[in-house]
């Protein structure tokens, strides 16, 4: 903010920033390092940052010990379906919430905020009973339904923001030109919202991919379980020999989230909008 910061102060700032980055990064680096260490090294008392004898054995062993591929498949199906369904049903509602000031829109905004405060226990027990009656326990469709509703609050929140950023002038201009309401929505508003919708969907994907509690309660058999639940199976026996595969599996499970996160982070939606208003 200030351009004329004194030199010692500046150096202090860099030092502080470095300290932060070290604190935030070191556990992840340690996870990666551990995943490449042979069992022998993990048993020794003096672990090093860089594996002395790096190996891929842990990765092989991880796939042998637990059904990681099936779990990743389940996670992918659950997260992808939840993200798509959530965005498809949330976008129209977000449009109404942003453009109309009705009681319903207000109630929906209230729900978005209040739903953040529910302790999951209060929701998961009834959901468990309801899904059990529908025979949707231990099934991905049941989990996906829960994920969709669970993703809705923030999807709505994000999308309402995006809709507000689309100037009403554009829609009014289309109406003046004789376009019907639906036509305006589809060919004027939707394209402008597209980047926001994609970002919202990707965020919903990450949240579902990372989710643990609902999956733990709702999925019972290993072949149905998602990655985070399967990862906890590595923790079963507290032996030093298990650390390697555990680290390897944990690292692999994180990669998709990191990649998707990197994509949304780079997304800049402002430019497209500015252009639309200008022309």
């Amino acid at each position: 903010m200030t351009r004329r910061t004194r030199r010692p102060a500046r150096a202090g700032q860099y030092l502080a920033l470095l300290a932060y980055l070290v604190f935030l990064a070191f556990p992840f680096l340690w996870l990666i390092s551990t995943s490449f260490k042979p069992a022998r090294e993990l048993g020794s008392l003096h672990p090093t940052w860089i594996p002395k004898d790096p190996t891929l054995a842990n990765y092989r062993q991880a796939f042998d010990e637990q059904p990681l591929l099936e779990a990743a498949g389940n996670s992918l199906i659950a997260a992808l379906s939840a993200a798509v369904v959530a965005v498809v049903i949330a976008t129209p509602m977000a449009y109404v919430m942003a453009r109309h000031r009705t009681l319903l829109a207000r109630a929906a905004t209230g729900w978005v905020v209040v739903s953040q405060a529910f302790p999951f226990v209060l929701v998961i027990i009834p959901l468990f009973l309801v899904l059990k009656n529908l025979h949707l326990i231990n099934s991905l469709p049941g989990l996906i339904m829960v994920y969709v509703v669970w993703a809705l609050p923030f999807a709505l929140w994000m999308l309402v923001g995006y809709v507000r950023a689309v100037p009403t002038e554009l829609e009014e201009a289309a109406a003046v030109d004789g376009a019907s309401k639906l036509r305006t929505l589809v060919s004027v508003t939707a394209p402008l919202l597209a980047p926001g919708i994609v970002a919202t969907a990707l965020f919903a994907f990450i949240t579902a991919w990372n989710e643990f509690f609902f999956a733990l309660v709702l999925l019972k058999t290993p072949e149905k379980q998602t990655l985070p639940v399967v990862l906890t199976h590595f923790l079963g026996a507290e032996g030093a020999a298990d650390l390697g595969p555990l680290a390897a599996a944990a690292f692999l499970a994180t990669l998709p989230s990191l990649v998707v996160f990197a994509i949304i982070q780079k997304r800049i939606t402002g430019g497209m909008l500015a252009g639309a208003v200008k022309s």
Binding site: P228, L231, T254
Partner: peptide
């Protein structure tokens, strides 16, 4: 700085 955000909580625990 936002990497921890992207990680599954289970992985954070394991790490």
């Amino acid at each position: 700085a936002i990497i921890p955000w992207a990680m599954p909580e289970v992985v954070v625990g394991i790490m």
